[in-house]
Amino acid sequence: MNSPENATICSAKGCRAAAVWVLAWNNPKIHTPERRKTWLACEEHREHLSQFLGVRGFLKDVVSLEEWQRRSAADR
C-alpha cells in the first residue's frame, strides 16, 4: 500500500493518521523468501492489519517506523 520511504500515513483503508509501525510481509506464492513488502500502521490499526496479514501467513515482522528507518539508513 504505502512504502516507508515516501509516506508515513497508515495503510488502513480510509485512515489518514500518522504511521508509527511498519508491518513487513510477503506472499510466499508470488514473492521470493527474502522479499519484504511493507504496510504502515497507526496505533489504532496495527493489530487489525497484523491479524489480516497473519491469518494468511504473510506477516514476517512488526517494527516501529523509527527502527525501520534506522535499519534502512544502516543498509545504505
Score class of each variant (00 low, 15 high):
1 M>S: 11
3 S>M: 09
3 S>H: 12
4 P>R: 14
5 E>C: 02
5 E>M: 09
6 N>Q: 07
6 N>E: 12
6 N>I: 03
7 A>H: 10
8 T>C: 12
8 T>M: 12
9 I>S: 09
11 S>H: 00
11 S>P: 00
13 K>D: 14
13 K>T: 14
13 K>A: 15
15 C>N: 04
15 C>F: 06
16 R>M: 11
16 R>N: 14
16 R>V: 14
16 R>L: 12
17 A>G: 08
18 A>K: 15
18 A>Q: 14
19 A>V: 08
19 A>C: 07
19 A>L: 07
20 V>L: 07
22 V>L: 10
23 L>D: 02
23 L>N: 03
24 A>T: 08
24 A>I: 05
25 W>A: 03
25 W>D: 01
25 W>M: 03
26 N>W: 05
29 K>W: 07
29 K>V: 10
30 I>C: 12
30 I>S: 10
31 H>C: 14
32 T>K: 15
33 P>N: 10
34 E>G: 11
35 R>G: 02
35 R>V: 03
36 R>H: 07
37 K>W: 13
37 K>A: 07
40 L>H: 00
40 L>E: 00
40 L>P: 00
40 L>W: 00
41 A>H: 03
41 A>M: 10
42 C>D: 06
42 C>A: 06
42 C>V: 06
42 C>G: 03
43 E>T: 12
44 E>M: 10
44 E>K: 15
45 H>V: 01
46 R>H: 02
46 R>T: 01
48 H>V: 09
48 H>R: 11
49 L>I: 04
49 L>A: 01
50 S>L: 06
50 S>A: 15
50 S>F: 11
50 S>H: 09
51 Q>H: 13
52 F>L: 13
53 L>V: 02
54 G>W: 00
54 G>R: 01
54 G>V: 01
55 V>A: 10
55 V>W: 06
55 V>E: 13
55 V>Q: 12
57 G>Y: 01
57 G>M: 04
59 L>T: 02
59 L>F: 06
62 V>S: 02
62 V>Q: 02
62 V>P: 00
63 V>M: 10
63 V>T: 12
63 V>F: 10
64 S>G: 13
65 L>R: 06
65 L>Y: 13
65 L>P: 00
66 E>C: 07
66 E>D: 14
66 E>N: 13
67 E>M: 07
67 E>T: 10
67 E>C: 04
68 W>A: 12
68 W>D: 09
69 Q>L: 09
69 Q>N: 12
70 R>K: 14
70 R>V: 08
70 R>A: 11
71 R>S: 09
71 R>D: 11
71 R>E: 11
72 S>F: 12
73 A>I: 07
74 A>S: 11
74 A>F: 08
76 R>I: 04
76 R>T: 09
